[in-house]
């Protein structure tokens, strides 16, 4: 009986209350808890870092392209040009 009353007094989201529902939703959205979610978040973080932070480190010239060098394999000209480009990105 007492346990039942204690359970009734426990704070929690009231069904239908949108604020409580949202709080409940946030609690349940523990995406990082699942293996797939962890892998997905890790991949997205890596791709975002590669795409947005990469150009700050490795500068390329997107306007002037040297077609003669466009098909060179990675590292042909030097170890500092991994995608087969010149240092200017051509």
């Amino acid at each position: 009986m007492a346990a039942g009353e204690a359970a009734l007094r426990q704070p929690g989201p009231v069904p239908g209350d949108s604020r409580g529902r949202l709080a409940n939703l946030r609690g349940r959205m523990s995406v990082a808890g699942s293996r797939g979610g962890q892998v997905g978040i890790g991949l997205v973080v890596a791709i975002v870092a590669f795409s947005f932070l990469g150009p700050l480190v490795y500068h390329t010239n997107q306007v002037t392209v040297q077609l003669g060098l466009a098909t060179l394999p990675p590292g042909t000209r030097s170890a500092r040009t991994p995608p087969g480009m010149t240092l200017s990105g051509g």
Binding site: V31, G40, L43, V44
Partner: peptide
């Protein structure tokens, strides 16, 4: 492929968590 797989994995995880 990696980007699409990553967002699908996150989507699956969100769906499972809900």
């Amino acid at each position: 492929i990696l980007t699409v797989v990553a967002f699908n994995l996150i989507g699956d995880a969100v769906r499972d968590s809900l």
